[in-house]
Design a protein around this nucleic acid. Structure first.
Length: 244
RNA sequence: UACGUCUUGAG
């Protein structure tokens, strides 16, 4: 089933879930037993799709084929629901996975936390964050990024700064997404100096800016009417191999 | 050994 899974994965990544399903039908016809990884691949195709019933169908089929759900399976199903703005349903699945003896990891909790952040339930996000700490799971950089973005989108600068300090005190290294999130926040609240200062901070931390960083920095300088610095950003951007 | 998480903007 491996070649079929790789094929289905390619289609799923391209957002072509109907092709993935066609592959499943061919596998059935050839009497090939799909692995759990194959079903995981199908699940990933339904992330962001409005057809949540299809997820139940995949779960039903996986059970029918006697596949044992893995950590990735549960995490994917949870992500389907968080991306559909239903983090409460995702949390039910988290409880179900615990009952069936599969231990959630940092990514699993990260998915749920992101789901609460995206629905503006920051108190719930913090609650889950504390649960994961109690369970000795180290939050990933991306999890801090989710929380930072949650606070940033509400303009809660103080909370965002608290998290940025917290992550570093817990030895979690900020990445380019972390800096981009903060630059975007400072720009939105018109703190252009703080936004652009992060360019220096990230370089000192040996974090490479990406295309988004340059775009955000450029905009911050334009909005603060500092056209000289804005043009310097364009130069840096080109030197870093990005095109304008 | 194939499978799971984060940021800009457009829409």
């Amino acid at each position: 089933d491996v070649p079929y899974s790789i094929l289905a994965s390619a289609y799923a990544k391209a957002g072509m879930d109907s092709e993935s399903e066609a592959i499943f039908k061919r596998m059935e016809a050839c009497d090939i037993k799909p692995s759990i990884e194959f079903f995981n691949t199908l699940l990933s195709a339904y992330i962001g799709s409005p057809y949540l019933e299809k997820v139940d169908r995949v779960i039903y089929l996986a059970e029918k084929y006697g596949c044992r759900f893995t950590l990735a399976t549960y995490t994917l199903v949870m992500e389907v629901y968080t991306k559909a703005k239903q983090p409460q349903v995702a949390e039910k699945i988290l409880e179900e996975m615990k009952r069936s003896g599969v231990r959630p990891d940092a990514i699993t909790y990260g998915v749920l936390i992101d789901g609460y952040c995206k629905t503006h339930n920051l108190a719930e996000a913090e609650r889950v964050f504390r649960i994961m700490l109690n369970e000795q799971q180290e939050p990933e950089t991306s999890t801090y990024n989710s929380l930072l973005h949650g606070y940033a989108s509400k303009g809660m600068k103080g909370e965002a700064e608290r998290l940025f300090n917290l992550m570093q005190s817990l030895c979690c290294k900020p990445n380019v997404v972390t800096y981009n999130t903060l630059i975007s926040m400072y720009s939105r609240i018109r703190k252009y100096n703080q936004a652009t200062q992060l360019y220096t901070t990230m370089q000192a931390a040996e974090c490479k800016p990406d295309a988004i960083t340059f775009k955000l920095l450029h905009r911050a300088y334009i909005l603060s009417e500092n056209h000289l610095e804005a043009s310097k950003i364009i130069i840096d951007m080109k030197n870093a191999g990005f095109r304008f």
